[in-house]
Every structure is written in structure tokens, then in C-alpha cells.
């Protein structure tokens, strides 16, 4: 991301935008949804699915387009992630990617 607007880098404007939408989500739920007694079930299901749905799109392409070391790392992390806490899985994944790349995979 390059260029400036009103003397500030676009990166800074993007961060400000991200901060505004994040605050909007944190304050907006109380302001808007508290007017409903109950959220319609399908809307509720959609809202519940959003974070996992977004995050999965950042993992899946990385698994198939990066290379064998990366694919193997994510496959093993997926398998152990069901049993181990996040931090343990993350550290093992980190060690794996370093080791597999060093091994030339």
C-alpha cells in the first residue's frame, strides 16, 4: 500500500478505518441489536459463522499454494489442534515449518 492522503500514509488511514469499524461493532451491537427481543435464527446462525468462515479463507489457500513444507505443517497443526491448546499447537507449528524448510522440503 503506497501513497499519501492529507499528508498521512495510506497505511495510517487504513488503520484508522479498521479502528472505526471495530469500535462500530463493539458499540453497535448494544445500540442496534438490543432493540430486538430475539435475533432471527438464520441471522444468528450467519453471525455465529462469520469469524470461522473469514479465518478459514486465510488458511486454506496458504495450505495449497505455498509448498510441501507449508502444507505438511498445516496438516499436522490441524490434527494436533483438536487436542492441544492454541499456544502449544502454534509453537509446534512454528518448529515444524522451520525444520521442514531447513530439511529442504
Amino acid at each position: 500500500m503506497t501513497g499519501e492522503f492529507l499528508g498521512l500514509p495510506m497505511t495510517v488511514w487504513t488503520i484508522i478505518g479498521a479502528a472505526i469499524v471495530t469500535y462500530a461493532a463493539r458499540a453497535g451491537g448494544h445500540l442496534v441489536l438490543s432493540r430486538f427481543r430475539r435475533i432471527p435464527p438464520r441471522i444468528d446462525a450467519a453471525l455465529n459463522a462469520v469469524p470461522a468462515a473469514v479465518l478459514a479463507t486465510l488458511v486454506a489457500p496458504a495450505a495449497v499454494t505455498s509448498g510441501p513444507a507449508e502444507a505438511v505443517t498445516l496438516a499436522i497443526c490441524l490434527a494436533i489442534g483438536f487436542r492441544l491448546p492454541m499456544m502449544a499447537m502454534f509453537c509446534i507449528g512454528w518448529a515444524l515449518i522451520v525444520a521442514l524448510r531447513a530439511a529442504g522440503l
Binding site: 479498521a18 471495530t22 469469524p51
Partner: peptide
């Protein structure tokens, strides 16, 4: 940011990930 993507898409993606806070906000309001 690393992929030189239009700023509004970055902001929209951040919003999508943080959208769950709408539910927290509504619940905490009580």
C-alpha cells in the same frame, strides 16, 4: 497490507473478523 490490496478491502476484512463483537456488545448491554 503485505499484499498491496485496496484499503477499503482491508477495512472490510477487519470488520468481518470483528463482527462477532456485535453479539458481545448486545449481550453486555444487559
Amino acid at each position: 497490507f503485505g499484499a498491496s490490496i485496496a484499503p477499503w478491502i482491508v477495512v472490510l476484512s477487519v470488520f468481518a473478523v470483528n463482527f462477532r463483537h456485535v453479539l458481545y456488545s448486545a449481550a453486555l448491554g444487559r
